[in-house]
Design a protein around this nucleic acid. Structure first.
Length: 374
DNA sequence: AAAAATAGCAACCGCACAACC
DNA sequence: TGGTTGTGCGGTTGCTATTTT
């Protein structure tokens, strides 16, 4: 026998946007009762909502400490990085952005960042993409999406090849958390904000939440790196909510302290490289404009290649972009990719930056020395 | 000025899984 | 042991606001 129908199948259950009155009732009830059995909430509050709807409303909008709208560049960067590492594991990603909900991040990714990345690729690699689009005509939307993700994963792979890069990503996340921890600015949507302010002071961000968020598990061993914090096989969806199962809370707090200290010691490094990253990724609209005007004014198909204006090169083979790019994730191909740069399609700024990082052109190894996180 | 298209986002849906009985 | 329940999660839908035609 399967599960009984969810309560939202019951007649009389209200759907659609929540009203401020409903928000107030729900928030007040949870404020009074504390952690609740969601099944009992509609009954006890008189709300004509299903338990799931109540839980969702609370966890996504009413829960104190939620920050809404106005994603910062650092948050964008972090989302992009983690999405490339873990895919659409929004809950896992959200666990590393303490004030954001998975739903919010997911929406932001779908409506902003995905487009941004696509634009980023299409502008900086017009030649490559032009041929890509033809090769992709036979692919359905899902498959193309998976290709997009594969491209993101290429960055991931490059990062994996080089411990310093991996550490860099870790440090980005860590420094983000550090700055968030000290941030007190919170922006709420109108009605939600009113409700939240009603609850202000009642429920501070729980120590556990803060601690969990601070214990991002960017693994440093190869097998661990591939595992998202919730477990890649989905065998345990709650894995990302626990810090280090082998350590007790005090140990984890100690690790956090050490980590923060190390982050502070790396400030100079972080600032310079995060700026580089942002420059390539988050300001590409400017680059896009430049590229467009460049292409308009020039008929010789000159295009932007990283920070240079190296002419684009036609792909040397007839392989599809998928083959071309996915195969490049092998170590040998990666090496070839780097060494045989002249024969490869031009890299985007981001790709080039990562390659520069991987080949040690930017950073000294001793500067990068960071204790493995967890 | 109005209609159509698009973007943004809140909320819903359904599946998976663990805990409980 | 198997059914029931509660919860988490990712994907999708649909409404509203904004922009374009």
């Amino acid at each position: 026998m399967g599960r009984p129908p969810c309560c939202d199948k019951v007649l009389g259950i209200k759907k659609g946007p929540w009203t401020p009155e409903e928000d107030l009732i729900l928030a007040s009830y949870i404020k009074e009762k504390g952690p609740v059995n969601w099944r009992s909430v509609p009954t006890n509050t008189g709300l004509l909502r299903c338990s799931k709807s109540c839980r969702l409303r609370w966890s996504n909008y009413l829960r104190p400490g939620i920050k809404r709208g106005n994603f910062t560049e650092l948050e964008e960067k972090k989302i992009i990085t983690l999405q490339s590492l873990w895919g659409n594991k929004w809950a896992a990603i959200a666990s590393n952005l303490p004030q954001r909900t998975d739903n919010d991040i997911k929406n932001y990714w779908n409506t902003h960042l995905k487009k941004k990345l696509n634009k980023f690729h299409s502008v900086l690699r017009p030649h490559h993409l032009e041929s890509s689009s033809k090769s992709f005509e036979f692919l359905n939307e899902d498959y193309r999406s998976s290709y997009d993700r594969t491209r993101n994963l290429e960055y991931h792979h490059l990062i994996h090849q080089d411990s310093s890069l991996n550490k860099f990503i870790s440090s980005i996340v860590t420094s983000s958390i550090t700055s968030w921890s000290s941030s007190t600015t919170t922006t709420y949507a109108s009605s939600t904000g009113n409700i939240s302010r009603l609850l202000e002071g009642w429920m501070k961000t729980s120590p556990n939440k803060l601690k969990d968020s601070s214990t991002l598990k960017l693994k440093t061993t190869q097998e661990e790196k591939e595992v998202p914090p919730d477990g890649s096989d989905n065998s345990n969806n709650d894995n990302h909510k626990t810090s280090n199962s082998n350590l007790d809370d005090d140990d984890n707090l100690l690790i956090k302290k050490v980590e923060v200290q190390e982050t502070c010691n790396r400030d100079d490094y972080l600032i310079s490289n995060e700026e580089d990253y942002l420059e390539s990724l988050l300001t590409f609209e400017t680059i896009s404009t430049m590229a467009c005007s460049e292409q308009k004014s020039s008929s010789d198909s000159t295009t932007i290649h990283g920070s240079t204006s190296e002419p684009p090169k036609e792909p040397q083979t007839t392989t599809t972009p998928m083959e071309d790019r996915v195969d490049s994730t092998t170590e040998s191909n990666r090496q070839g990719w780097i060494e045989d740069d002249q024969n490869q399609p031009p890299f985007s700024l981001l790709e080039k930056w990562l390659l520069d990082e991987a080949t040690g052109q930017v950073l000294e190894e001793d500067q990068m020395e960071i204790s493995p996180i967890f």
